[in-house]
Computed example of a mutant assay.
Amino acid sequence: MKVYALCGASGTGKSYRALSIAHENDIDYIIDDGILIHKNCIVTGISAKNASTKMEAVKRAIFEDLEHRSNMIKAIEKNDVQSILIIGTSWKMINKIAARLDLPDIYKKINMEDIATKEEMDEARKSRMEKGIHIIPLPTFEVKKHFSGLFTNPIKLLFKDKNSDIKEFEKTLIRPTFSYMGKYYISQKAIRQIVTYEMTKFEDVCQTISIDIKHNRSGIKIDIKVKLKIVEILRQCESIQEQLMNTLENTTLLSVNSINIHIVDIC
């Protein structure tokens, strides 16, 4: 087995470049933040990007948990992995991952400084620090089955294979449950005020009767009781849900799990 490694500081764009490195070096598998990736699919693992705290994320990335580690070793053996790329923030971290997963010595080491300019890495850091955005080298449909958090537009890449056939790959941008911006708290009163104000923008809403907000580890759930006019009720509810979802996520940076509209009266 050939083991490749990509090393770079947090937020410098390692996951962004992972697919191109794998394509250029004919690497079949990628280990990124605690998961094993093969051909646009998660083979096994528990992603650090789906952790609720930064400390938990670090432990997942280095396979601190024995069951997590054992499942990864078994998956690598079962799939007869011949080439693999490990992504890490330091060589100490990468070596620890390789040792814990019983992988052979690293065949090729790649530093972010050698494949990306300072300006590119600074821009990637800015996106991480200001928006909490992470990139996962998987298509969005695959990511949504395993991750919680706010998803944004995917990035599509085109590569030529050995036969000059064009292949399309997709990367997903996600703001995970934990954030590099640190812990913060937004009161239910503030969220309720935003929702109340947004509801006044809908002409077909006669009255907002109640707004119930529930917080959980992955985001918030909102239940709204309204009095509506009898004009395409389903369309009105979908419009309310979409507009509130966009406004709350852009305003508060919270992940909104669901917005449920309960029609309790008509006018």
Score class of each variant (00 low, 15 high):
A22F: 09
G11P: 13
Y197D: 04
T12R: 13
K225Y: 06
V81C: 03
N163R: 15
T117F: 00
I259A: 04
R69C: 08
K160H: 07
V205D: 07
D105P: 11
Q207F: 12
K74N: 09
K144S: 06
F147T: 02
K189R: 08
A190W: 02
N40D: 15
N260D: 12
G11L: 10
D212M: 04
R175C: 08
F202E: 02
N95K: 13
S258K: 14
V81A: 10
K78F: 08
V58R: 10
I261S: 05
I94R: 11
K183S: 04
I133M: 12
H38Y: 15
A57S: 15
K54I: 13
F63Q: 02
L157R: 14
A61L: 00
T89E: 11
I31Q: 07
I133H: 02
K162D: 07
A75P: 04
I87S: 05
Q236H: 05
I21F: 12
A116L: 12
L19G: 06
K49L: 15
I233N: 05
S258D: 13
Y107H: 15
T44K: 07
E142A: 12
K229M: 11
A9E: 11
D265A: 14
E64D: 03
S70R: 15
H38E: 11
L254E: 06
H68R: 02
M55Q: 12
K59W: 00
I110S: 01
R125W: 08
V43I: 15
Y185L: 10
G34E: 04
T117M: 01
I136G: 03
K131D: 08
G219L: 06
S218H: 10
Q188W: 03
F169D: 03
E77P: 00
S187G: 06
N111H: 06
D122T: 09
H68S: 04
N260S: 07
A75C: 08
T53P: 04
C267A: 09
V226P: 04
I222E: 00
D80W: 07
N71P: 01
F169G: 01
T200P: 02
G11K: 06
G219R: 08
K145S: 01
T117A: 01
V143S: 11
F169E: 12
K74Q: 12
L244T: 05
T53H: 10
